[in-house]
Structures are given as structure tokens and as C-alpha cells.
Amino acid sequence: MNENRYPVTASLFMLKEIKHRQEQVNRGYQLLKRKAEALRIRGRQVASELASTQAILGHTLREAYITLAAVKFTNGESNALVLENIGQAQIRVQRVAENISGVSTVSLLAVEEDGIGDSFRYAGLGAGGHRTGEAKKAFREAVRILVKFASLRNSCILLDEAIRTTLRKVNGIEKVIMPKLRNTENYILTEMDEREREEFHRLKMVKAKKVKTRTRLLLRQSSSACGAGEAKEESGDESPAPLPIRRHSIECLTGILTCTSTLSMTTESGDFKPVCYPHNWDDDDLLF
């Protein structure tokens, strides 16, 4: 059965390592959540600016084309004049790098070159030169707004992709990595507790076995001593009597041997404990 955890060995070292990984994952999770929130705020700002700029751009382009129609009506067709006098660009686009919560974006800025001469400043002076100037200003303003619209559109696309990637990472950490780490920690703790209970049970069994062996040895020695004393009494030998043996100690030793099961198991804790112990033993006799 495949469990939702990492394949690790149950040990104190791995438990410490898993806890350290959990701390790092929690720190990264919080940072990613803050990043996603900051990107969302910036994305809303860019989206609102983009909507307002798009509305302004439509109005500006409409006014610019109206002024161009007025120039054509006043001065006639001027496309040939424009194509003949094309030189250096008077408006250039500058790329400005911007970092938004770790996401690199590029903003476009329209820069007007003042040192370049205008070949159309005297065009149409005889017949409506002010119309040409108004058309020029209208189209320059349209170019600036168009550059700003392109910059906001690019930033909006980059921020949208960054928000999706960040949210994907956040969901992966929250739904996959963190549950696996928690399940791994619970598995290690469960295995270590089980090993501790098994070791405790083994020590109890060994201790009970040693107690039983020592009890049999003492009972055997007492039985041999009693048999030797009776034989000497029958032979009439007046040798010093053996050391008296306490009656309750012998009864307790006999009770231990006659017990069918020296251990009883509690259903709740699962521990084993001896049933009978001698009443006159010291604590040193019960140790290993």
C-alpha cells in the first residue's frame, strides 16, 4: 500500500531533518503567498491603467485622424512630401527595466529628440499651416499614448503569467509537499513509539525470566537443605541445624512455581507484569 509520505527510515536524525524541512517549506510558502498577493495588487493597478489608457487612445486617434482629414482638405494630398523628407526619428522608445516582487518587466517610455530639425515646420504656410501643426501635435500625443498602452499591455501579460506560476507553486506546496512532510513525521513518531514499546516489553520479559530462574534456584537450595537436615536427624547426628528458612518466603516461592502464567497482559497499555514476587527480596535482587 503506497502511503502519502517520503520513503525514510524511522530515526531521530530523520525526524530532525523532516522538521527542518518543514520549517523551510513553511517559510517558502509564506514568501510565495506574499509574492502572489503583491503581484495581484500590481496586476490590478496595471489593468485599471490599461483600461483607462485604451479609452484615451481611442479618443486621441479619432481626433488625430480628424485633423489629418482637415489637412488633406486644406493642403491637398501631402504623402509625397512626407516620404521625401523622412530623416531621423523625432520620437524614440526607451526600454526601462522594472522589478515587481521578483518579476522582471520592461516599461516603454516615449522620448522626444529636441535637437533634430523638423522638416515640416514651414509646410503649408501658404494654405493653412496651423492645420498641419495641429495634426502633428495630435499624432505625437497619439504616439505617446500608444507607447504607454503597449508598455502596460506587456506588463499585464507578464504579471498574469507570473501570478499563475506563483499560485501553482503555492498550491503544490500546500496540497502535496506539506501533507507528505506531516505524514512522514507522524510515521517516524509512530515507528519510534512502537520500537520503544517493544523494547520495554522485551526488558520486562527478560526480567521476569531472571526472577523465575533465581526463584527456582533458591527453592532448589532450600529443598536440598531441608532434606539434609532430616537425614541428619534420623542418623542421630547432633550437628548444628541449618539456617532457618522463613515460611512465608518458601510459600511465595512455591506460589511462583505453581502459577500457570507468570505474566498478565493489560488490554489497554499492552504491558506485561509479573504476578508473584517474594516478599522478602530487596530491590537489588530485582535488578539485572
Score class of each variant (00 low, 15 high):
H279T: 03
L287K: 11
V211R: 07
E112R: 14
I256M: 15
S107Y: 05
L125D: 07
R62S: 14
G76V: 02
S223L: 15
S155A: 14
S223N: 10
Q94C: 02
V82Q: 01
T9H: 07
A127E: 11
L31T: 01
D114H: 08
A162E: 03
K210A: 15
R44G: 09
K212D: 12
E198D: 04
S101W: 06
G58K: 05
L146Y: 08
M178Q: 15
K180T: 03
R164L: 11
A208T: 06
I91C: 08
R214H: 12
L152N: 06
L109Y: 13
S48T: 12
Y277Q: 08
F13D: 14
R34N: 12
E233F: 06
V106K: 03
E174R: 14
V46K: 04
E199I: 07
H279Y: 10
S52E: 12
Y277V: 09
K207C: 12
F288Y: 06
S101P: 01
R144E: 14
S222Q: 14
A138E: 07
K16F: 09
A138R: 09
K19E: 05
H248W: 06
F200T: 10
I116S: 04
L61M: 04
I245M: 07
H20V: 00
L158A: 10
R153C: 03
V96R: 12
Q90P: 01
A231W: 04
E49Q: 15
N171G: 05
S223I: 09
G129E: 04
Y65Q: 09
S104D: 06
E141W: 06
Y65L: 11
K180D: 10
H20Y: 13
N183T: 00
L83K: 08
D282R: 05
R246Q: 09
N183M: 00
R40T: 15
D193F: 12
L68Q: 10
V71I: 08
A64K: 05
G128C: 01
Y187W: 04
R21Q: 07
N79H: 03
D282G: 14
L32R: 04
I163Y: 14
V93S: 01
N85T: 03
D118P: 00
L81D: 10
Q221Y: 12
Q94L: 05
I18R: 00
Q90K: 08
A69L: 06
A208G: 01
T105R: 03
L15A: 08
A70G: 04
E23S: 05
E49T: 07
